[in-house]
Design a binder for these strands. Structure first.
Lengths: 212, 212
DNA sequence: CGATCGATTGAACTAGATCAAATGGTGTGG
DNA sequence: CCACACCATTTGATCTAGTTCAATCGATCG
């Protein structure tokens, strides 16, 4: 079992050390909701992985529009950059903790890089399949199904992000996202006990809606 | 300058050897249009990169729908798999040649893996941004702009794939793709001398349409 | 020169966006 | 502890963008 040692907690940020099985330590930062881990244009230094909560990657285009690249969940790695600058901003969505693996080309990150690159690619490919869905229903359904998988849950999923962010990510309006979720509720596919929690009552039904 | 040695050519498939500067040889296959390189479900053996033409990755979902994962152009690498089976099919779009780097975990592929994974990730992330565009115009514009970049061209792009495939990739109907392209033509943003060739007359105009 | 398949165009319909208003939840101050 | 204010979300009504279905056009190939 892995162990966490909390070192300080001030102003919503904490540093801790993640004690790996082999005794090595990796720095862990704990963030409160909505904090920026790095900003688009910052020097691309590190490779990160989520240990708790959720991290949203987004960028602002030349024309001033915001695009959401994705939401990262525990066990998922982000911060890969080909260029010397981060092309996306990373911010927490809800209280979250993030493990820092050091600079992308550092020896510390090497092992991580090796083992996590292909999973990152696979993850991204799945996200692509969500966004190539033709209708709002199928997109939202695919999104929820993806969350089920990535949260390793049979029914309950956490959606700590705003509806607006989900909408922007899916290329839909927030009103449409809201309406689709309501409809899914009426169809008894899902149940939303609170705004940031959704119980998927009938996962197979969701999957049938995908790519229809 | 790199050298190609052609060894055989039968039934549209040829094997050749790509003579690298250091003298090492990497196998190259030449395919005619629409040939399948591997099929979804095939054992995931190899890592490939396009040397000429275009390769389309697609899959068929449980519900029988086809999804297009993307189009790969010269210099781009595909075939990454986390699991022992290919989750997508790869087929050529137009006459194409593909370099085979050997099994994904082989020493021959190691170097390639190292150098090409982050670029693959970056590429995929760009594609994600295309698909998260909210309107048909912005999607098609982003798609064309992406092709300009990836074909390293200032104006002319080749679109060897069918309109239907583009449409499926973008989550649009083929009619809409056709209409958008026609409209772009009327706006004198583009000019299509033939069905598979498009000249972008005013690239900056395309970019303004993206993410509007 | 016809046959076939893909692409385009047209017309009707529907899904989703937009604008506007109402609701609900959370935190703050009285 | 309650009332208010602020924000995100939901709901409603209208309008537009995109799909669908159908017909036409065009290129390629026997």
């Amino acid at each position: 079992m892995e162990e966490f040692q909390l070192h300080e907690y001030a102003g919503g940020i904490a540093m801790a050390y993640h004690v790996k099985p082999n005794g090595a330590q990796a720095a862990i930062s704990i963030y409160s909701s909505g904090e920026v881990i790095y900003r688009q244009g910052d020097p691309a230094g590190g490779l990160f992985s989520v240990t708790f909560g959720c991290v949203m990657l987004s960028r602002v285009t030349r024309t001033g529009n915001r695009q959401i690249s994705g939401f990262f969940l525990p066990g998922e790695t982000f911060g890969w950059e080909l260029e010397p600058e981060h092309r996306f901003s990373a911010e927490t969505v809800g209280t979250s903790s993030v493990q820092i693996h050091g600079p992308i080309h550092s020896p510390q990150a090497a092992e991580w890089r090796q083992s996590e690159l292909v999973p990152s690619l696979t993850l991204l490919r799945e996200q692509l399949m969500i966004l190539s869905q033709p209708t709002a229903d199928s997109r939202v359904a695919a999104f929820l199904d993806d969350q089920l998988t990535r949260q390793h849950s049979a029914h309950r999923i956490q959606l700590p992000m705003h509806r607006f962010d989900i909408a922007e990510y899916l290329g839909l309006s927030p009103e449409t996202v809201s309406r689709v979720l309501r409809r899914f509720g009426l169809m008894e596919l899902i149940n939303a006990p609170s705004i940031h929690v959704i119980d998927v009552l009938y996962p197979e039904g969701l999957r049938k809606i995908c790519s229809r």
